[in-house]
Amino acid sequence: MNIGIRAHDLPKQPMEGLIKDIARRGLGSVQLALNKSFDLDIKPGTLNPGMAYLIGSAFRRHDIQIAVLGCYTNIIHPDPEERHSALSRFKEHIRFSRDFGCGIVGTETGNVNPDIIYTEENFHEKPFQDVLSSVRELVEEAEKFGVIVGIEPGVNHPIYSPETMKRLLDEVQSNNLQVIFDPVNLMTAENHERQNEILREAFSLWGDRIAVIHAKDFIISEGRLVPASVGKGLMDYEFIIQQLSPHINIILDETSPEHIEDAIHFLKSCESTS
């Protein structure tokens, strides 16, 4: 299995220390959010090929793949200036992605509110059209550089279901748009008992467009869905792993350092029984 981690789920530290920490834990890839992950302050407009190559080379020396450049931002921010700034920052990541040795830049699809919160206002037609406009703009840039825009659907966003993700893929019609799939992000306290039905629909509609899997888990506490480290909750990972393409990047998400070893063992045990 190709198991990695979001680099910012480990303690923030100097780059070399972070990379050695990742390698020591037996992880082979990362989703890298630059300013969240180590003590480099990369301001908008300062990213360049030399900096990207320096960072990418440091990971390659330890045989760690930068599987995704994380640029998670509100691509439909209600303030037009903030939205423009978010899209410009994402495009900057696209332009230099290949210098990192990475082919995917990822984000969720934002929120009608400045803060990313659950609201059914996201589920109306206008937010979908706003997402479509922003994603088309990002994919147009990605096509110039041979890079994939990875979109992560979730119930806190306008792309909140297997159907809306399928609609976005159909409307954009570009292979430079692919899916970062976090199964827990489609779950709620109300629908989690139908998880296999929802998962089957997702894999049926766009399983061939999944570029990366995020692996976390969930529990239900006081009627609310609460994220948990993978293997510590209710997600049916045996079923999920049965559906995956060989060697796909599986990125641990919201996994605290003390649970990483258990998470790796759990996922490998699911693979052996699938």
Rank of each mutant, 00 (worst) to 15 (best):
I117R: 15
L225Q: 04
F203E: 04
K43A: 14
E82S: 11
G103F: 08
A7S: 12
L169M: 11
N196K: 15
S174P: 02
I117A: 09
G110R: 04
N249Y: 10
V30Q: 03
I76H: 06
G106S: 13
N74D: 11
E143L: 06
L186V: 13
M165C: 13
A263G: 12
H259R: 14
G223K: 04
V68T: 04
I159H: 02
K91S: 12
M1G: 10
T119M: 14
L40H: 11
P162Y: 05
S229K: 02
E16C: 06
I116F: 10
V147M: 03
G223F: 01
M235T: 14
N113M: 14
P162I: 00
E201S: 13
E193K: 13
Q173C: 14
D236A: 09
R89Y: 05
D41H: 10
E81I: 06
R209H: 03
I220D: 13
R224L: 15
E271K: 13
G101C: 05
E201T: 11
E92D: 10
S133K: 07
G45R: 13
S221Q: 13
L267D: 06
A86S: 09
N156E: 07
L27D: 08
H77Y: 07
F218P: 15
V105H: 01
L234V: 13
P127I: 00
I264V: 10
N176C: 08
L225G: 08
V226E: 12
I3S: 05
E271N: 07
E120I: 08
K216W: 08
I42W: 06
N35I: 11
P49V: 00
E163K: 11
E201F: 03
V147K: 02
F181P: 03
P14L: 00
N185H: 15
H93T: 04
V131C: 05
S97G: 14
H265V: 06
S88P: 02
M15H: 10
F123D: 12
Y53I: 04
